[in-house]
C-alpha cells in the first residue's frame, strides 16, 4: 500500500506539473513532448493507484497530507531549464528504479518492465536538453545551472527507504549520482555541492509533509472533481 501510493503519487503529481506546460511551452515540439511524458506518467499513476483503491478518489479527494510523493515532483515548473533540471533528476532516478523493479518478481515487476521502456525516452529527452542548454548560450547555461542548484536539495529524498520497496538504496543512489554527474559535466555545468536535503522540511514528502506550492497545485487539480461530484464527460 505505502509503496504503491509513493510511486503512484510521484507519477501523478509530476504528470500534473508537466501538463501545466500545455499552451506555454517555448516551442510546439516541446509542448507535445512534455504532454506525452505527462501522459506516460498518468498511465503509471492510474495503474499504481488502482492497485490500492479507487483512482479518482485517491487523486481528487485526498488532502495534501495524505499524498506520499517526493517533494521534488511537486516543485513548480519555473522556467524551461528549471523543468528540465527536475526532469533530469527524476527521470534518471525512475529509470534506474524501474529497471531494478522489473528485474525482480515483486508486485511492481509487470508495470516496471513496461514503464522502464517509456521512461528511457523521458530520460533521453532530459539529458539531451541539459546538454543543449548547458553547452548553449551564456544565458541558457546560467539558467540550466540555476535549475540544477535550486532543486538539488530535493534529491536526497529519492533514496529514502519506502515501506514495501525492497531495494538496495545505496547502489541506487550511487548509480544515480554517477549518471547525473556524467551528464552535468558533459554539459559544461557544475554538479551542485550543497546538502541533498534541507534543514527544515525538505525531504519529508513520503511522510505527507509538502512544500507550499503543492497545496495550490492540488486545489487546481482537484477543484473540478470536488465541485461536481460524480460528473462524467
Amino acid at each position: 500500500m505505502t509503496a504503491a501510493l509513493a510511486l503512484g503519487d510521484d507519477a501523478l503529481v509530476l504528470s500534473h506539473r508537466l501538463g501545466e506546460w500545455a499552451g506555454h511551452a517555448p516551442v510546439l515540439e516541446e509542448e507535445v513532448a512534455l504532454a506525452n511524458i505527462a501522459l506516460d506518467l498518468l498511465g503509471q499513476a492510474r495503474t499504481l493507484l488502482s492497485s490500492v483503491g479507487d483512482e479518482d478518489e485517491l487523486a481528487f479527494l485526498r488532502e495534501e497530507r495524505s499524498f506520499r510523493n517526493v517533494q521534488l515532483v511537486e516543485q513548480p515548473n519555473g522556467d524551461f531549464a528549471h523543468t528540465i533540471a527536475r526532469q533530469l533528476y527524476f527521470s534518471v532516478y525512475q529509470h534506474l528504479l524501474y529497471g531494478r523493479l522489473a528485474a525482480g518478481e515483486g508486485q511492481f515487476a509487470a508495470l516496471a518492465a513496461k514503464a522502464v521502456k517509456e521512461v528511457a525516452y523521458h530520460r533521453d529527452h532530459a539529458e539531451q536538453w541539459v546538454l543543449r542548454l548547458g553547452d548553449g548560450t551564456a544565458e541558457s547555461h546560467e539558467r540550466m545551472q540555476r535549475g540544477l542548484d535550486a532543486l538539488w536539495r530535493y534529491t536526497g529524498e529519492l533514496f529514502e527507504p519506502v515501506e514495501g520497496l525492497d531495494l538496495d538504496r545505496q547502489t541506487l543512489g550511487d548509480d544515480w549520482l554517477a549518471a547525473v554527474t556524467s551528464v552535468v559535466r558533459r554539459a559544461t555545468l557544475t554538479l551542485p555541492t550543497g546538502p541533498q536535503s534541507g534543514g527544515w522540511a525538505a525531504g519529508a514528502g513520503r511522510q505527507g509533509l509538502h512544500t507550499e506550492p503543492f497545496g495550490r497545485m492540488l486545489a487546481e487539480m482537484q477543484h473540478l472533481h470536488r465541485s461536481h461530484p460524480g460528473a462524467s464527460w
Binding site: E29, V32, A33, N36, E118, Y121
Partner: peptide, 13 residues
C-alpha cells in the same frame, strides 16, 4: 529526428 515525441505517445517526429 525533429522530436522524440509526436502526435501520439508511440510516435516520434
Amino acid at each position: 529526428l525533429l522530436s522524440r515525441f509526436s502526435s501520439t505517445a508511440c510516435k516520434a517526429l
